[in-house]
Design a protein around this nucleic acid. Structure first.
Length: 308
DNA sequence: GTCTTTTGACCGTGT
DNA sequence: GACACGGTCAAAAGA
């Protein structure tokens, strides 16, 4: 098996279907409105920032897990640093502002170290992120998942080794969902899911959870080849054939579909340092445990922020 | 021989 | 308690 033999053509061919309404998250509960978000940022930045041009500044995002709590860090490139923390359970999201200063909090230093590690190993690894970023958690005790809508070529920007451990057809979706875990270390808890967006043949919904507890594998031929190649390919294991084409290809009732073995083990990015372009969009979603113990995830278009 | 993929079965959670 | 659903396991097969 080669590391760089990705073949997307066969997979893309049969994906011309309409997108259901609940592709990414059927229900996302918003804790706040867009105005609330803006007001919060105004309060946070008004005193210390003279050159803040709103949310048009660029962020990098990384998920950290400390003592069982998930934390989402928004890393602005400039001019300020601020950290968004969300702890589960039980508190709602809190946003902390860290004005530009030479004195950095420990959390920021830890974050910066991680970013530096990634940058030194893979200096050319970036996502254009022209699609929403969604953070969800659908069940209790389940890790927070970050879902990206990535283009085919962005799928190839991978620094990690993945092994497929399952495939399921999801209800109301004609396309299967593929499950991967990190194959570099058995102790690594990083996982991801990949499914094809029924709305756009060039977009894949990639969800990441957990963290890598090791450095990225080195000497991956496909990193350079995929980043530089104009002919992007997908790993064979990303089975995105719709039900009608796969003929019972689901994990529960499928017969084996023989595909050409001209592609390699899947190597897709996980928790990459993200760079949002000036026209990118980000969705801020809150997963909240309600008073009755129920957990609800909801998304509101009002909070869709355009960085223009 | 090693690693990855496939896929039916199983399990946990929610309704 | 039964059912539906999503996620994971693990044996078998393939490269």
């Amino acid at each position: 098996m080669g590391d760089d033999d990705w073949d997307i053509r066969a997979a893309v061919k049969s994906c011309n279907i309409n997108r259901p309404d609940n592709v990414v998250a059927s229900k996302l509960y918003l804790e706040t409105s867009l105005n609330d978000v803006w007001n919060s940022f105004d309060k946070l930045f008004a005193h210390d920032m003279t050159n803040f041009n709103g949310l048009s500044e660029i962020f990098s995002v990384i998920i950290m897990n400390q003592n069982g709590n998930q934390q989402l860090y928004l890393h602005p490139i400039q001019p300020a640093q601020f950290i968004q923390q969300s702890s589960f359970p039980p508190s709602p999201i809190t946003v902390a502002c860290v004005p530009p200063t030479t004195t950095k909090p420990k959390e920021w230093i830890d974050l910066q170290q991680q970013l530096d590690i990634g940058a030194s190993n893979y200096p050319n690894f970036t996502f254009s992120m022209e699609t929403p970023l969604i953070q969800t958690r659908t069940r209790k005790n389940q890790l927070i998942m970050i879902t990206y809508e990535l283009l085919q070529e962005e799928l190839t920007n991978d620094n990690w080794r993945w092994r497929k451990y399952g495939q399921k057809h999801i209800k109301d979706s004609p396309l299967p969902r593929n499950y991967y875990n990190c194959s570099t270390s058995k102790l690594c808890e990083a996982k991801k899911k990949i499914e094809k967006s029924p709305n756009d043949e060039n977009i894949f919904l990639v969800s990441y959870s957990g963290e890598h507890n090791h450095d990225p594998p080195m000497n991956r031929r496909n990193i350079a080849s995929c980043n530089s190649s104009s002919k992007f390919k997908l790993p064979k294991s990303i089975n995105i054939l719709p039900k009608t084409s796969t003929l019972n290809a689901s994990s529960s009732s499928s017969k084996r579909i023989k595909l050409s073995r001209d592609v390699a083990s899947p190597t897709i990015a996980t928790m990459p340092p993200l760079e949002f372009g000036s026209k990118n969009k980000m969705i801020v979603a809150v997963v909240e445990e309600k008073g009755d113990g129920k957990e609800e995830v909801d998304m509101n278009e009002d909070i869709l922020m355009s960085f223009e």
